[in-house]
Amino acid sequence: MAGTTEDTSALDRARDVIVKYGFIAVTIVLFLYFAATEPAFATSSSLFSMLKFVSVTAILGLGVMFTMVVGGLDLSIGSVAGLAVQMAAMTMVFYNMTGATAVGVVLLAGVLVGLINAFLIVVCKIPDLLATLGMMFVIQGAKLIPVSGQSVTSGMVLRDGSEAPGRFTQGFLQIDRGFVGPIPLPVLIMLVLVIASWFFLSRTTWGRVMYAIGANPEAARLTGVRVGYYRGLAYVISGVLASVGGLILVSRIGQGDVNAGASSLLEAVAVALVGRSVLGQGKPNAWGTLLGAVLIAIVLTGLTMKGFQYYHQDTAKGAVLILALIFSYTLSRKKIRYTSAT
């Protein structure tokens, strides 16, 4: 119950402020610290490269966020991104098709994986985590089969001894390298997707219903909501976003690396969880997810400039995640669940 004395209520209020703005404050303080100590840090080119660097993680984080909104979690997100990398490369290199075709194929694959996840979760009633864990393995394994475990590169030798006919098109490579005005294309794609996700979730009936399912699926069902349909939809959206992330990734590395995307699962889950914590909202949201991705970018870029090696990065990411979880679970006073009224 609420505090009975002035002291505790003042403490509670202070705590609310910390929960609400603490994370943003941490981000700003870190930013200022790095900017003050590393002159190269705060230049606009450095800022954009930082955002560009984080765009894939942020977009994958949006995908995870959608599944978190309906009370689930998509563990297959990293492997779908990896699948996108390979399918884009195969479409252009093996079959000598255009970059636009590759984009279409990859997005379709994302929809398909999303539908399979939805089928397993909604129709087969497998818990979200387990169904997507299974899909993660299936995708990671299945994509190795047609390429015999090899990464797809321009000019590689195929199984029949001939050379692969196609290569990455210039247009396709522009997905990562292009600019609109001063803004790198991946950063623009990320911002558009963040704004679209925010609008979808907080302004449309679809998003409202998804939040309702996450808050209390039984209460949602008893207002006439098709719970299964919307849960499935979240996984399809997640699959598509993973594919978009994968497209940027493959355009960046310029080959169908079989290992691409594997590490992005944990980062995507981390930024979505961080996103749920910021602004004291206590629910997954698009701007928070972006902020989580940006914070991780600031930390990693800052540490790199300070001379820390790559092998410090995972520890830093993990620390950021734990800090965010402390904000939402330990410090927040929001009630976790209802007690019966009788």
């Binding site: 209390n216 209460a219 976790i336």
Partner: peptide, 13 residues
Amino acid sequence: PEDRAAQAMLLGW
């Protein structure tokens, strides 16, 4: 429904 807390209320709404 019968059980307001479990069947009609949504956390934080």
